[in-house]
Structures are given as structure tokens and as C-alpha cells.
């Protein structure tokens, strides 16, 4: 890595003093500690991230199945995935619905919570702790609890609550129309507290004088919110939106834990809870179509990249309005 770079040391038109120094002692030897300190990170980064990414790009154009050596098949995986794969269409549709509602509702609730409980009073601190609790609880435990709450039997918590209102029991997890709403509900429940913490920091960074000035001008609470709070909160909002967007596209564990009924079924009844990453897992590690699964992985990247770029552009356009 660094041996090839040593000859440049004398060619460079650097300031004279530095050049003279470099001549006295070669760059590499002088800076050896630096390279040694960088090397462990770079080596692992290259071995377990850069190389796998390149390799995965290559595999996406092959028919690799884990046993036979891969054959290049051109765009076959992508055309199959994008044009005639009903399961992928289902996964993409479910994921899109999930992302829109999960990100939208989580952000709205997080903002509402931050506005309501932003001070350092005991009441606000307690409420913040309650809403933040899911973020520090084992996610596997949470999904197992939700699975138990949405139990099909009458004694499940969800069905008990329905019974209080005189409604009949529902087979929650095996009703296809309820799969995505349940996943959205679980993610909003689990994610709002995290966004709230970020919004609270954002709110507290807004100078108090702005509000005082507005008050002197006789602005209503609503106008203050609309003309001071929201515009100044925009960078924080964008951050919350983008990070939860990226996280929502990668949903896996909730689907796998709450909706899997048998060992070979990852997406719930009629694939009603199937999402992109569970589908990738199913094709890659259930059916061992590793080439095809790599094409799913790169499709996931493209989708996330396009959506977050559009989102960033949108936020910038809004700022210029």
C-alpha cells in the first residue's frame, strides 16, 4: 500500500522546507507509526466491507448457489426480480407501506412528545424515560412479547382489550390485512421515544429570545410554532426522517420473530408480512440462491439511495421556499 507511494515524495512540489525534511528522512519511515495505527482498521475494513461489497456486486450477476462455481448470467437476476417475481413485488409493496406509515407516524409522535415533555421537570423526565424504555430493551424480547400479546386465543392481551369494548376476538397474526398495520404499530411504539430525545435536544437549542420577541409582537402559540419552532427544527427533522427511513427499509427481526409460523415460512400467512430483507434472507439462506439474493441486496441499496436522496432534495427545496 505505502511502498508504491514513496517515490512521489521527491517529485511533489511541496514547500521547500518540507521537501528538504522529506529528503533527510523518507516519508514512509518518518510516518511509520501513523501507517501502523491505521493498518488494523483499514485491513479489516477492506476484508469485511469493501471486498464483500465488490464481491456481492459480482455475485448479483451470477447464478451462484453456494456449491457450484458461479456462472455469469448478465442481468438475468435483476430482470427476474423486477419484472416477474410476484413475491418480490409483494415484499416491495409491504415495505413501502410500512416505511411510509412507520416513518411518518414515528416522527409525528416523536415531535408531539418532545413538545409536550421537553423540560427538566420530574414529570417530563419520567415521561421521557417511559417512552425511551423500548429503545434500551432487548429487541428480541420486545418482539416475543408482541407475539404473545397478539395471541390468537381469547386470553391474549389484544383480544382481552377488544373484549372490554364488546368486540369479538381477532386472529391478529394470521389475518393478512392486519400484518403491515401491526408491524407499523410495533415500530412506532418502539421508535417514537428515540426520535423524541433528538427533537428535545433540537428544541432546547432554539434561542429563547426568538419566542420572547414574538410574544412582544403578540404572536399566538400556533404562529410561534409554525414560524419559529418548525423552521429552526428542520435540520433535526431531516435527520430523524432519514435515519428512521433507512432503518425502516431494513426491517427484518420483527417480521421474522412475530410472523414466522413454520421454519420455512418467513413472511407470515400468504406473505402478508414479507419485506425486502426477510425475502433476501429467505432466498439466500433458505433456498441458497445466493446470486439472486445478492441482486435483492443491491436493489435494497438502490431503493434506499433514491428515496433518501429525494428526501434530502425535498428538505432543501422546502428550506428555499
Amino acid at each position: 500500500m505505502s511502498t508504491t507511494e514513496t517515490p512521489h515524495a521527491t517529485v511533489r512540489s511541496a514547500p521547500r522546507i518540507r521537501a528538504a525534511k522529506a529528503k533527510r528522512r523518507p516519508h514512509l519511515r518518518r510516518n511509520l507509526p501513523g501507517y501502523l495505527m491505521l493498518a488494523p482498521f483499514l485491513a479489516l475494513f477492506a476484508a469485511f466491507l469493501v471486498w464483500p461489497l465488490l464481491n456481492s456486486l459480482y455475485l448479483a450477476f451470477t447464478d451462484f448457489n453456494g456449491i457450484k462455481p458461479p456462472n455469469l448470467v448478465g442481468l438475468d437476476n435483476f430482470t427476474r426480480l423486477w419484472t416477474d417475481d410476484a413475491r418480490f413485488r409483494k415484499a416491495l409493496g409491504n415495505t413501502s407501506l410500512y416505511v411510509v406509515f412507520s416513518v411518518g407516524l414515528t416522527t409525528l409522535l416523536a415531535l408531539a412528545l418532545a413538545l409536550a415533555f421537553r423540560t427538566t421537570r420530574l414529570r417530563d423526565k419520567t415521561m421521557r424515560t417511559i417512552f425511551f424504555l423500548p429503545s434500551v430493551t432487548s429487541s428480541m424480547a420486545l418482539f416475543l412479547i408482541w407475539g404473545w400479546i397478539f395471541d390468537v386465543e381469547d386470553f391474549g392481551l389484544a383480544n382481552t382489550v377488544l373484549a372490554w369494548f364488546g368486540a369479538d376476538s381477532v386472529a391478529w397474526l394470521s389475518t393478512p390485512e392486519l400484518a403491515v398495520p401491526i408491524l407499523v404499530f410495533i415500530s412506532v411504539w418502539g421508535g417514537a421515544g428515540y426520535g423524541m430525545i433528538i427533537f428535545v435536544a433540537g428544541l432546547n437549542a432554539i434561542p429563547e429570545e426568538l419566542y420572547e420577541q414574538a410574544e412582544i409582537d403578540g404572536a399566538s402559540a400556533w404562529r410561534k410554532f409554525w414560524h419559529i419552532t418548525l423552521p429552526l427544527l428542520r435540520p433535526v427533522t431531516t435527520y430523524v426522517l432519514i435515519t428512521s427511513l433507512i432503518g425502516a427499509f431494513q426491517v427484518f427481526e420483527a417480521v421474522y420473530v412475530v410472523f414466522r409460523t413454520t421454519a420455512s415460512n418467513v413472511g407470515g400467512v400468504l406473505d402478508s408480512a414479507l419485506m425486502i430483507v426477510p425475502y433476501l434472507y429467505d432466498m439466500g439462506f433458505g433456498k441458497f440462491e445466493l446470486g439472486f439474493a445478492s441482486a435483492i441486496a443491491w436493489t435494497l441499496f438502490i431503493v434506499i439511495f433514491v428515496v433518501s436522496t429525494v428526501q434530502l432534495r425535498l428538505s432543501r427545496t422546502l428550506k428555499d421556499l
Binding site: R30, L49, L53, S56, L59, I246, F249, G284, W298, L300
Partner: peptide, 26 residues
Amino acid sequence: EIRGRRIIFLVVLASMMVPWQVSLIP
């Protein structure tokens, strides 16, 4: 003083945009 530190930093930044599941199979 590290040669190519801008490029190294750029590659690291770029890699953050790719979801980690992409490198899962390799």
C-alpha cells in the same frame, strides 16, 4: 501525515451509504 487520507476518508464515508445487508452474503 498519511498519504491518501482524503481518499481513505471518502471511501469510508461512501461505505456508510450502503446498507450492511449488501455485504451479508459475501
